[in-house]
Amino acid sequence: MADYLLFATERYALPILQAMADALQAQGHRPHALLVDGAAGGALPGVPSLTLHEAVRLRPTAVFSAANWVPPFIAGAKVQLFHGFNVEKREDARGHFRLRPLFDLYCTQGPATTVPFQALAGRHGFFKVVETGWPKLDPLFRPDDGRAAALRAPAAGRPVVLFATTFSRRLSAAEPLFDAIAAQVASGERYWLLTLHPKCPSDVIARYRGLAGPNATFVEPEQLLAAERAADVLVADTTSVVSEFVVQHKSVVTFRNRAPKPHMLDFDDPARLPAMLAEAFAPPATLGAALAAYSDAIHPWRDGRSAERVLAATEALQAGRLGALQRKPAGAWLRNLQIRHHMGYWRLR
């Protein structure tokens, strides 16, 4: 039995860490949570939340991070779980494939992520890469625990649409699509599940909350995975929710996606939303083939056991079965100081 630490900086990371907590507990280990910044005040059921000082004293076997960074002064292997898929919001050097000299192991989601990170690992040598699948998606491939059914129940047999957005005002569909979505909700033809990135402007979130009623409900970040399972079609923008939804081989309608692909039904005029929804609910065969191909590239694992593979990869790293790690680059000490400053922690232990 060993102690492990689960680290998050945003609420939307909690479902990722919950899957890890479940796998750790099933194998007799003790998970603990360190939730900071946007995740502060959140919780993982059945997992004790620690202060930073308590986390340091814990000296965990490993730290599983569902964030872009991790406190390097906490003991244990530092494992990157990712907080989303690569949706090409930024150039590779600034986005998904940006290296931070903090992690010992990257647990990748599928070939589209694994191959680039393996190339980077071969070039730099201070981390290892194992394709495990993404723990957050494990519940999608297991029997429903009732949460998806509960979200779908008010639809009373109507088709269900999920609306999700990214937070960047430049890329978000939340404001330009509000009137079109409000009209769809008012019609009652379909039932809507509405969720916005927690970093969206508070006034925009309030407007969408105001649409809740007999034809719609507002979904909190912790409910997102259940909503993805409950919905028949997704309306979104450049959010990584698109990729999460696609692995179910369900249709996705995207508004001004930054990098539209064959598996998306992309449009740029809010007035076209009704027509795009009609196509999504009666998709051509070519769209189904594109959905399957993209899903296999980003996340071919469909057994609901990605969290178990993450734990196995971490144990292999610590046992030396993945080979020796080179020292972190010289700039790692500066990043350590920056994180200590951000977290207000200057003790040596």
Rank of each mutant, 00 (worst) to 15 (best):
A227L: 05
P139N: 04
R335H: 15
A39Q: 06
K89E: 06
V129R: 00
A119I: 04
C107W: 01
V185P: 08
A226P: 05
K89F: 01
H299V: 02
G133R: 00
A280K: 01
A23M: 05
F73C: 03
I298F: 06
L44W: 09
S240G: 09
L322W: 00
S295L: 07
L194T: 03
S202T: 07
A153Q: 13
F64L: 11
L234M: 06
G38N: 12
A319M: 00
R98I: 15
H53A: 10
P45R: 04
L17D: 00
G213A: 05
L151Y: 07
W134T: 13
F103M: 01
L265H: 06
Q18G: 08
F218Q: 09
L291M: 13
I205K: 15
S49G: 14
A216G: 07
D37Y: 11
I339Q: 15
A55P: 03
E175M: 12
A292L: 05
A23L: 09
V204S: 12
E189M: 10
G288V: 03
F97N: 02
R256I: 14
Y208P: 04
I205D: 14
F73R: 01
G122R: 14
V242D: 02
H29D: 11
H29R: 04
E308S: 08
K250F: 02
M343S: 08
W192A: 11
G288L: 13
L6Y: 05
A55C: 12
A227Q: 06
A324S: 04
H342G: 10
E315G: 02
R123L: 07
G133A: 02
Y208I: 05
R305G: 07
G304V: 04
A121V: 06
R340A: 11
D145G: 15
L225Y: 14
H342W: 10
A324C: 03
P72V: 00
P101T: 01
L291V: 02
F218S: 03
E189Q: 15
Y208G: 04
I298N: 00
L325F: 00
G288C: 12
F82G: 09
R207V: 14
V242L: 09
G42D: 03
I74Q: 01
G95Y: 06
R123T: 09
R158I: 10
H83P: 04
D145L: 10
V79T: 05
T314M: 02
L151R: 06
D104H: 03
A149I: 12
A62Y: 01
N68S: 10
R57M: 04
W301F: 07
V87C: 11
L52Y: 03
V160C: 12
G133L: 01
F245L: 07
M343Q: 12
H342T: 10
Q318A: 11
W333G: 04
A2M: 14
P101K: 00
H32A: 07
R256S: 13
A173S: 15
R190F: 02
A164H: 02
Y294S: 14
G304C: 05
A259L: 06
P116K: 08
G125E: 00
P176M: 13
I181K: 04
A180R: 13
I298A: 01
V63H: 10
K328G: 01
A182W: 07
H53Y: 07
